[in-house]
Write a protein that binds this DNA or RNA. Structure first.
Lengths: 373, 373
DNA sequence: TTGTAGGCGTTATCAC
DNA sequence: GTGATAACGCCTACAA
């Protein structure tokens, strides 16, 4: 599927850039010295060191840093000076253990190949930036069993909240989370009874709207391509929305042109060719994600097909590329960064004590009619 | 710059998908019960509970889970049964504190907009998947000061190793890391004296090779576009490599066609138009990243420019889109997933005690000559 | 093979 | 406003 025209000239060897592993031998660390004669520990400066240096008790040093208002300004200044002089870095892990309050939250994404998920990640990372909570990342590879394992691992690591993708999860995942009693945010859809809260939109309605748009434009022989629905409840809902729109307008929904496809531009191209060979009368193809749709638009260009003259193409997500294709791609816009941001904010609010359970945030969607339909 | 042809029809209101926040009131958790009459804690099952349940001492339970070989099979079985019955999830944070051994590593990326960095992330996450270490993520937004803050935060959170992008860092970052004595891996370039180890390639040589390729193909009036070099040592090295190649072949390097550009397809399109208006005789443009180059190729299509007839275009990175453009983009291939994987593996090796400091892993590069040049 | 004692670095509790 | 004491949950060291 990949079109690599021309020769592929390796410069690695020419330019001395072949794989080299060299070790600068003498650069080993200086011998490790433990400040005190104790048995264990990093040898790292501790709060006790700071307290000693400042002539106060450890708890006062702790308060000076975490609850400055409870400490006399002079004392506080002494502690702050000691912190600076000793280059003290607090051990948040220890603090977290002592106060039994978490210091990180987790996000589990189904993939890092698709920019729609890294956009969500970006939104979440941004929202957490000044919160004091770190983000721990997991990739479930669209596998519920892997997701369950990740959830268990993250619980063991003491995360205070977890963000999941989609509404369908392994039973084990659900019982782990119920048992752990931590805030859970499901994203990308709006289950009626979320595990905790959820932020997303109606994949069914969005897909229905796009199918409706195609029908309105006069297309009657429509095909549908999505990811495998068995492992992806969003794709499943989009397929249902598409089917409902066709049924509502009395159009046939030919199973031979309702495809499941792997991910990628090449896969979109392949799906286009497959559909046009299986059913040449197809006048429009609705792809449930923009990467597939973009692959099809780019393939049409290579094949000399006119879009939408020979076949109309619609996508879903509104990735950056969509608006830059020729012709620009009709698609459904989803505010993915906003989704990630909202999900992270829900986690933060829950950690701050705001009532959380059952909240359902609908971020909506928007049909963007460009030139491929 | 964005080309949105056609109307933009919001379905949110039509389909009842407008923003809704509803709270399912009754779904609050059952009252929180603390197993024992103690003062603090989550109320979560602890190793002590498991030990009691199994009729052994806590340390035996600990060993049964972490060093099974040191425990009699029968005892181990009793502990395992207790773990299952109580749905015990270990507190790795506490274990980490007690053994003063880390349980997470950090990756700091300069951006989550560019897939080249999420590819690296994917490689790293993959390599860490079965390692027992979690990945904590930070986004520095190409800002050395933010990077320094993130490093400090991550050190406070007790990560065992840190992966950075590039070779240039704030002095504070360097002193923090030197002081912390934890493994650091720099990525995307090969500094002569890395902070710890590094995995990357010669940006200078790769860029030189691409410029050489353009010159070899007969182009003489070449322009160069990259990200702002002040905050990006890779872009700076690529610009130097380009300039050296031109100098070596006696070509003029016109400062008016050596541009710095923001990121994105739209920015690439703008750079193309800018260069052709500033210097219409330009016969080739070398973009230091594929997103800019792709934006230019797509813009050329819209503008009716022939590539490479009117202007040749070269990129850098070999993103997925590059090979699917029409014409397919000439670029420099970098194994980004391999880079992330190698970086993560270096961290793991260092954490396992393998000599680490000074190791420099060159992943090489490859000029992919496709049809835009 | 199993157990006892004590500590990892911090903070909650309660007293002064 | 400050401090002594104990606890967070687990593991290392040493002993039996």
């Amino acid at each position: 599927m990949r079109v690599d025209v021309g020769s592929s000239l390796s410069m690695s060897r020419l330019e001395g850039a072949s794989v080299i592993v060299e070790t600068v031998a003498s650069a080993l660390e200086p011998p490790f010295q433990r400040p005190r004669g104790n048995r264990r520990g990093h040898g790292r400066t501790t709060l006790a060191d700071v307290a000693r240096h400042a002539g106060v008790s450890p708890i006062t040093a702790s308060r000076a840093l975490n609850k400055p208002l409870l400490v006399a300004p002079e004392t506080r200044a002494r502690v702050e000076r000691a912190v600076a002089e000793l280059r003290y870095i607090p051990n948040i892990i220890a603090g977290s253990l002592a106060s039994s309050s978490p210091s990180a939250v987790a996000a589990i994404l189904p993939s890092l190949d698709n920019s729609i998920f890294t956009d969500v990640l970006k939104g979440a990372v941004g929202a957490l930036e000044r919160s004091g909570y770190r983000l721990v990342l997991g990739n479930s590879h669209f596998d519920p069993a892997v997701e369950a394992t990740l959830v268990e691992t993250f619980l063991a690591h003491g995360v205070g909240a977890i963000m999941l993708t989609g509404a369908r999860h392994a039973p084990q995942t659900q019982s782990l989370l119920t048992n752990a009693r931590i805030p859970v945010v499901q994203t990308w859809s709006l289950p009626r009874r979320p595990l905790g809260a959820c932020v997303g939109f109606s994949n069914f309605a969005a897909s229905y709207a796009m199918a409706h748009h195609l029908i309105e434009r006069g297309y009657r022989d429509i095909a549908f391509v999505s990811a495998a629905v068995a492992r992806n409840d969003r794709a499943a809902a989009r397929r249902r929305g598409y089917a409902k729109a066709l049924a509502d307008h009395g159009l046939v929904n030919d199973p031979s042109t309702t495809l499941e496809s792997p991910f990628g531009l090449a896969a979109g191209a392949a799906a286009l060719e497959r559909i046009l060979s299986v059913r040449p009368s197809t006048d429009a193809i609705f792809f449930a994600n923009d990467v597939l749709a973009s692959g099809a638009v780019l393939a049409a260009l290579r094949l000399g097909l006119r879009v939408p003259g020979d076949v109309a193409i619609a996508g879903f997500d509104d990735i950056e590329l969509a608006g830059h294709l020729m012709p620009p791609l009709t698609t459904v816009r989803i505010d993915r960064i906003g989704l990630g941001k909202a999900a992270a904010e829900l986690m933060l609010e829950a950690l701050a004590g705001t009532p959380f359970k059952g909240r359902r945030v609908d971020i909506g969607f928007e049909v963007i009619a460009r030139a491929t339909t």
